[in-house]
Design a protein around this nucleic acid. Structure first.
Lengths: 335, 335
DNA sequence: AGTAAGGCGGAAAGCGCTTTCCAACGGCGT
DNA sequence: ACGCCGTTGGAAAGCGCTTTCCGCCTTACT
């Protein structure tokens, strides 16, 4: 009758205290199957459980039930507002599904991505969400196939943001269409000499956005950034220095656009009168930079919650997320 | 000899395939204790394990070893750059300790916070990091004591960011000193009529920052925000409308400062010539808003990695994180 | 009343792994 | 040659929980 057991109470102890069998205790505390337990016993068990401060043991449950309530989310960097917003959306959805989210940051190292996939597999995560993989297209199939082999058989699902080819359900942001929208906007403003601050060319997202843009307006120059603010700054700086005649630049994502804005400022170019800048994603904060950023909006929270939904729902092919133009103050007519 | 077992291989199967006992397989695959295994056997086991694509079963290990490699991180909202930056720091440190991080967003609902604590306990997380709790000071002790009772006995640690009173190790950002720094800066610029956009008064962080500020410069008016950008906007709007004579405002965090900047703009007040604005935290992006925000800098990544360190290290009291003033362009001399 | 049909509690067999504990096996000293 | 000790492999006992299967007891029906 000790009220403060020095160690975490177990179901067995609750059962004993309530004078019922382990099975009964399990039934009332988890009451899954159609089985019912007499009200009196149920109450006794519940009472003892709370008196003993019983907390179920998820690992043991996982072992016995052969499934967990964990989903893994692999991102490049959770401090990046793009991933942070997606993660928030995913977590909100996770709550609706009674799931916990394990987040892993690869800091853009492919090796780490592989390692985390393995660890998430070891945890028997229900699903693994690749919010942005270093492995896309055929490379994906080749390098990740191994790491994913057997995961599906074991009941695990893999879903991704962006196209990863064969067999992986994904939510597809409208990268191509969105970038085309950005280009059209610039065209309508009379820009013809425009540069683009791109990203690592191996990523499918980069290829899509670049292609979408160029399908409308061939870039006069493109330079490669790394999706970081400082990378965007450096890229823009060299771009604007080498091509002073550019009247607009398209950054493949907003955080690089932040850097572009800063570079323009440092180079004495007035935005938007001297130079128009347009980004992509519409991350929170895009409206507050100086000047407020014109960008292509993706509903990042929705993106996150959809991908989580895909991850736990039945395999259902891919869903796409629309992109829209939001005009703020970083773009204006050419000259 | 099937090469593609339809189900995840188990240690037993690896052992059988390698012709050794389960115990031996376990020893080579996890080789913890001083025990050694003959080289030949070790190689055979390793070979079979990789041929069978063996992946250890973390839940089972957790059960047998009575410990996991999970730490929980509870934040208000991972999309908030403040928490995102902290999480990134924590995850980097987690990697060094071979831990996985389970992130939970409470979206500022105390009820959810309690629920997640329970779930993390159920997962047998090694430690729970309260990055920002709705329960502070005595309220903390009262309401959370129950939820945490027994967790320590069971080996779990609870650490927090900010002061939570009794028994909880914490990393303490220099909230008081930092806010005092902000006030001094404003004073040195000649401001005397300053307003502050505060946060939920129940939070210790809010109390500390407010007190620190007022210890140097009594606020002419304080209005309560909610640490969101739009909350900051609304608060600033009413503040500036009701007290048009204010020459400066201190926002308790940068994201509210974003809102203050926007409100000032909408109200036709020029920052910094008409109105100085200073924030707190120096979140990534603070340098890119218009105008670049003067703020009190906290090394958020460091904060995150320190708190993770505290969580897995031995109980060692609290550590504090310094704050420093970074002057950008949102503050200027009064009048 | 007698019996078939349910409802409901309990015993027990695992789930995959770690970790004692024991036994077998060489090599050594005397 | 013989007994000892240091090594190293294996058997087995759990870790805390779920779930099937059994059997008892209560109802209801003829």
């Amino acid at each position: 009758m000790r009220d403060k057991p020095s160690t975490q109470a177990t179901l067995q102890q609750v059962a004993d205290a309530a004078g019922v069998s382990l099975a009964t205790a399990s039934r009332v505390l988890h009451g899954s199957g159609g089985r019912t337990v007499r009200e009196e016993l149920r109450a006794r068990v519940l009472a003892e459980a709370s008196r003993l401060r019983y907390v179920s043991h998820a690992p043991a449950q996982a072992l016995a039930r052969a499934t967990t309530s964990i989903v893994g989310l692999i991102v490049h960097d959770i401090a990046d507002p793009y991933f942070a917003a997606i993660a928030a959306g995913a977590m909100r959805a996770a709550r609706d599904h009674d799931l916990m989210v394990m987040v892993a940051c690869t800091f853009r190292e492919p090796q780490l991505e592989l390692e985390y996939i393995a660890r998430l597999r070891a945890q028997r995560a229900r699903a693994i969400i690749l919010a942005a993989s270093s492995f896309t297209g055929t490379r994906f199939v080749a390098d990740l196939a191994d790491h994913l082999a057997g995961y599906a058989d074991q009941g695990g699902r893999v879903v991704a943001i962006g196209d990863h080819g064969a067999g992986v359900d994904a939510v597809l942001p409208s990268n191509f269409a969105g970038a085309a929208l950005a280009a059209s906007h610039l065209v309508s403003l009379g820009h013809t000499q425009v540069g683009v601050v791109s990203g690592p060319p191996s990523l499918a997202t980069v290829a899509d956005r670049l292609a979408g843009f160029q399908s409308v307006l061939p870039a006069a120059a493109v330079v490669t950034g790394d999706f970081s603010r400082d990378g965007g700054y450096a890229a823009a700086r060299s771009l604007l220095t080498q091509h002073p005649s550019l009247t607009a630049v398209f950054a493949l994502d907003d955080v690089m656009a932040y850097g572009v804005l800063a570079a323009a400022r440092d180079l004495g170019r007035q935005v938007p009168s001297d130079l128009s800048v347009i980004g992509f994603d519409d991350i929170p904060g895009a409206a507050d930079v100086g000047p407020p950023l014109t960008t292509i909006r993706l509903d990042l929270a929705e993106l996150g919650s959809r991908v989580l939904g895909l991850a736990v729902g039945p395999p259902s092919g891919s869903v796409s997320i629309p992109a829209s133009l939001v005009v703020r103050s970083s773009t204006a007519s050419a000259r």
